[in-house]
């Protein structure tokens, strides 16, 4: 089986893995929002330290976290390069050729964008690393519960999601089998231009879809046979509970978010102070 990058779960036992999944989902959403308010290198450094600490507590090797950016490396380079040359703000140009300009401001902006993207991806993968598919769906179901009031069938949606996640590896397996079967009958998937290749995939996609519908049919019977919809009061085996460790996580995360916002709006970027501090130290040593 090919490795499925999406929803990759790191099955170890740790306090982070045991955190309330609802909390982790909310944290991740807030983290994404917060990342757009990070304004200084100091804040980026703090977030990186936070993520490394997270790795430590969740028994996930930091290298696994760093590997998660592999998928977006082209996007990363492209956006940084474009940002570097086409920075729109006021600049003190140091180097120019045709329409390309490089300035300290542009370098600053490109670097920050890159850091933002990297930390964004690494932070969000920590959610899927530490949260299993079932907990994730349970968490989403619990968070969306208020929507029941406006007659949105949240429970059914959660089951659909859980089944979808469960069938991803099965369908990938099936695709591999069909591809091999077609190859053994002389199908060619690896040569020709992009259109030719796309067309060659058709004999794979059609049996895949037919098979998927047949699976869906059988699954519907299996759901019925196991009394799906039998009782309006569906119970749950796993109870999501809010524990002390969730409270601690909440405090730590709140502190991180508070720091980012304070840094931007109150301090106005801690970098200048650090530079000033550095200068004072340098002056001090020069004076000696």
């Amino acid at each position: 089986m090919r490795d499925v990058a999406f929803g990759q779960y790191y099955p170890v036992s740790s306090p982070i893995h045991r955190l309330d999944p609802r909390l982790k989902i909310v944290f991740t959403l807030l983290y994404v929002v917060t990342m757009f308010f990070v304004s200084s290198y100091t804040a980026y450094a703090v977030i990186l330290i936070f993520l490394l600490a997270l790795c430590g507590f969740s028994h996930i090797p930091p290298s696994a976290m760093f590997k998660s950016i592999k998928g977006i490396i082209i996007l990363l380079i492209l956006t940084s390069v474009l940002n570097l040359f086409f920075y729109g703000g006021e600049t003190s140009v140091v180097w120019q050729w045709w329409i390309f300009k490089i300035s300290p401001e542009a370098i600053d902006s490109a670097l920050k964008l890159m850091l933002r993207l990297i930390l964004l991806i690494m932070g969000t993968t920590m959610l899927t690393f530490t949260t299993g598919a079932t907990e994730l769906t349970d968490g989403i179901e619990s968070l969306l519960k208020p929507l029941n009031l406006i007659k949105i069938p949240v429970r059914d949606l959660a089951i659909i999601m859980s089944i979808a996640l469960r069938f991803i590896p099965i369908l990938i397996d099936e695709t591999d089998k069909i591809t091999m079967a077609q190859k053994s009958r002389g199908a060619d998937f690896d040569s020709g231009n992009i259109f030719k290749r796309a067309k060659a995939l058709l004999p794979v996609l059609i049996p895949l879809f037919v098979g998927a519908f047949r699976k869906a049919d059988e699954l519907a019977d299996a759901l019925d046979a196991r009394c799906y919809n039998a009782s309006p009061k569906r119970t749950r085996m796993k109870k999501i509970t809010f524990a002390v460790r969730d409270l601690i996580a909440l405090i730590v995360f709140a502190a991180l978010v508070a720091f980012v916002f304070l840094d931007k709006y109150l301090i106005g970027g801690a970098d200048t102070y650090i530079v000033k501090l550095f200068n004072i130290i340098v002056e001090f040593f020069k004076g000696l």
Binding site: S162, K215, L219, A222, R226, C227
Partner: peptide, 20 residues
């Protein structure tokens, strides 16, 4: 084609959960 969850115990719990 007859399993609904990715974890064994969750799949087995599916029936009794439906019954409440």
């Amino acid at each position: 084609n007859q399993m609904v969850a990715s974890v064994v115990e969750d799949d087995i719990a599916f029936g009794p959960e439906n019954l409440g």
